[in-house]
Design a protein around this nucleic acid. Structure first.
Lengths: 194, 194
DNA sequence: AAAGTATGTAACCTATCGGTAACAAGCAAG
DNA sequence: CTTGCTTGTTACCGATAGGTTACATACTTT
């Protein structure tokens, strides 16, 4: 394009990254692919972003992927409902966002400074919530962390898997039907445990 | 090599696949890589196996990756101990085998007939166990399937992640320490729920 | 108007990928 | 011995990857 507008060009490049990420994942984000999808010469990618790594870093920065949904305000009266709501939001987030699913998938095959930073922020957010639940419920840190881990680790796995596989343990993970059953189980678990 | 022994050559190729899978994962298994690692001309890979897909199919067939550990014999007297033992075995299996971790990782990014077959067999095995637990405990299928899903989905996720990340929700997923805490939580959960 | 800088493209380079053709050498059967 | 099949290697092909060089065009500044 001969628009001669650096800001617009940069945005065009970043938009192309987003499109590729959503459809094919971070693994597919290369100079040639971005150049083709954006319609911009690949030279400009290097000129404006330095490298693909830095381009991806910028993309991650723009779409702030560290646990960004505003979590339901801490309701100090009811621990169980709070915990349930948090996980519900977490599941919704991952089920709705292809890009986020692709990010979680990418993290399983790759490691780099951007990802480590993301993980660190996520860890902080998660531990904040976990500590809050600990105080509210009187349960031990290990217990709450353990339960939380079972849920927050299985969810991305199932969400990623659902793009290739329809049924897991007889649950339809591609439709609300299966996820509602899972949510019921999670609710039940918190009722019994917390 | 000029050994002139087809069986041995085929084995050499398959061994190379195994080595690549364990270290770099299924994504890295290409003709050139296999040829280099095995020291065999890549022409022979095509001649003896047809394609990389078929080579991988053979590899998966040889190392039977469908939930293959002999699970603790069904103890009809104690449901909880049975469930705990099953998951303990599952975790051990995944933590011990790099190849199996790589397989689970591969399944999240790829789909093909071999993988679908694996998933189907796994589904059957899992549902066999789940149904057994249902009958023993009197719990509903949805409940048992839900709980089982939380565990069997979070475990591969954490095992894969542990190759790039040391701590998750304050748990050390790279050492026994973290996993023991998780096992305690699982035990606790079964005590409270089943 | 002239010089310098910012924006853009086309063309090229090297490396590597999957895949094949052509050829060399061993071995078995007539 | 010679014919024919099997096992093996070398060398090549086209496609595509990341990355760079060289050049054209516009805008800004003096």
């Amino acid at each position: 394009m001969t628009t001669r507008d650096r800001n617009q060009t940069e945005q065009r490049i970043l938009d192309a990254v987003g499109k590729i990420v959503e459809t094919e994942g971070f693994e597919a984000v290369g100079v040639n692919a971005v150049a083709n999808v954006s319609g911009v010469s690949k030279v400009l990618i290097y000129r404006y972003f330095g490298s693909i790594e830095q381009l991806l870093a910028k993309y991650l920065e723009d779409n702030d992927f560290w646990l960004n949904t505003e979590f339901p305000a801490l309701q100090h009266n009811n621990v169980k409902d709070f915990a349930k709501a948090v996980f519900r939001a977490y599941i919704d987030m991952l089920r709705k966002s292809p890009a986020l699913r692709k990010l979680y998938r990418w993290e399983l095959t790759t490691n780099n400074p951007s990802i480590e930073k993301l993980r660190q922020r996520r860890e902080e957010t998660a531990m904040g919530i976990i500590n809050a639940v600990c105080q509210m419920s009187g349960e031990s840190l290990e217990r709450v962390a353990g339960i939380s881990t079972l849920v927050t680790a299985s969810v991305p796995y199932l969400c990623i898997l659902s793009e290739n596989c329809g049924v897991y343990n007889s649950l339809e993970i591609t439709s609300d039907s299966g996820w509602n059953k899972l949510l019921e189980t999670i609710d039940f678990m918190f009722d019994k445990i917390l």
